[in-house]
Design a protein around this nucleic acid. Structure first.
Lengths: 230, 230
DNA sequence: CGCTGTCTTGAACGTCTTCAACCATAGTGG
DNA sequence: CCACTATGGTTGAAGACGTTCAAGACAGCG
């Protein structure tokens, strides 16, 4: 069962009517997943709507080459696996919980009902998809025009604006990414990522701390964003 | 003024109600553009909905490096510049007519009205955005995992499924792309594209004909899609 | 005719990948 | 307790791939 207040806090449903809210509470279910657990697999038929309530979810594709391509991370209040839902196809990617997570789950038919009955939800989806498109387009740009170093710098830059916290030692990006995951995000080999990031570490540009990454000088990082294979 | 029958032939509006159809005919306008003419510029405020009725439209971004990145081509029945419209921001890209074209234009307020009043239109947008997302994601994959040769092969492969016509000499892809445009589409240097495509030409893999590209052996082309930097 | 734009080729260079090691840590079972 | 295995991080050297720069061919068009 779902708490009405919890729904209100979700940006996606913030503008929702009281009626729709009640309806949602009745039909939605909360599932919990432990760290590393798979929520759905690529190729599975898409039968539910998912939204993160707590924790972090990674959505990724396994490529023919055997590598993984991380499409995105989803945090509190963000909907995922939504794209295939409207059309009713299969999931184009897999989702796993990065940490213990709870997820709002709504059956497809209820979701479609919500969509038809409450136009503001449709609007909300369109807005969401629009933003997602922007991000993807930007990624194409970055991938097509920048070298690996600039791609990683750009990645950190994006996260820093999203989750960065100012501390006395610099900007802290409280996110735990293994070198492998960074490689998956920027489409590069792990060795290349390591070489670049240990150089940064040595030069004090980006320092690894237990909480995530620490960036003493954000400007210096931003400068790298413009460099390389340009 | 707009012909009601013309609207029916547009996939986007095929499922539209008779009422909505009439409404659309009254409010939409048809603009014509000559080859090379700009329809809107990146950064302009997004104030209209556009849909190609005849001809071909290129949507692209100019990057800081001075290069152009082609986001997509739009042909008959396809809507473009729609993304910024719902949110009311600026165009994220520019659009030019590749050949003489006529375009359906609908003011923003009318478009939003259509959206609110006829939920099937909202659905249609969501479907459209969904497909666009798929294509973009695929593009990220291709860009991240394949070498230039495989990217070009993939490009032609996509177009061949979309517009390819079987002839006695092989599959004809009736599309006119300069080497420069191919380069923009696959994010590579023009020289690299030329080297690869003239090798293909020499080997008879892809032949340049006045109507576009001729692919005698589609399988051979598809094989290249899987190759390189993998 | 000379101009401009697209196409073309060659050679040098740099980036990134590949392959092959190696280290550290933590967990497992004998 | 130790050997065994798995996982994540790290480094070096060789080579592939693509870019860059420089130069030239070729067409259409004033």
């Amino acid at each position: 069962m779902l708490d009405a207040k919890a729904i209100r806090r979700i940006p996606r449903f913030s503008g929702i009517s009281a009626e729709a809210e009640g309806w949602l509470c009745e039909h939605a279910v909360v599932s919990t997943y432990t760290k590393g657990e798979t929520i759905f697999f690529e190729g599975d038929p898409s039968a539910h709507f998912y939204m993160v309530l707590k924790g972090e979810v990674k959505v990724f594709k396994m490529l023919e080459s055997g590598r993984e391509l991380i499409l995105d991370f989803f945090r509190e209040g963000e909907a995922f696996g939504e794209v295939a839902l409207v059309e009713g196809g299969d999931f184009p990617a897999s989702a796993v919980a990065m940490e213990d997570a709870s997820v709002l789950v709504l059956p497809r038919r209820d979701y479609l009902h919500l969509l038809e009955r409450y136009p503001e939800v449709a609007h909300s989806i369109i807005r969401d998809l629009t933003l997602r498109m922007h991000a993807l387009r930007r990624r194409v740009e970055v991938l097509g025009e920048m070298g690996v170093q600039a791609r990683i710098a750009n990645l950190l830059h994006v996260y820093s604006r999203q989750l960065g916290k100012q501390t006395e030692a610099g900007l802290l990006i409280p996110i735990h990414l293994s070198r492998n995951e960074v490689a998956s995000l920027v489409c590069a080999r792990i060795e290349t990522v390591i070489r670049i990031m240990s150089r940064w570490q040595k030069d004090g540009l980006v320092v690894n701390v237990p909480e995530g990454f620490l960036v003493p000088d954000v400007e210096a990082l931003a400068a790298l964003t413009a460099s390389s294979t340009e």
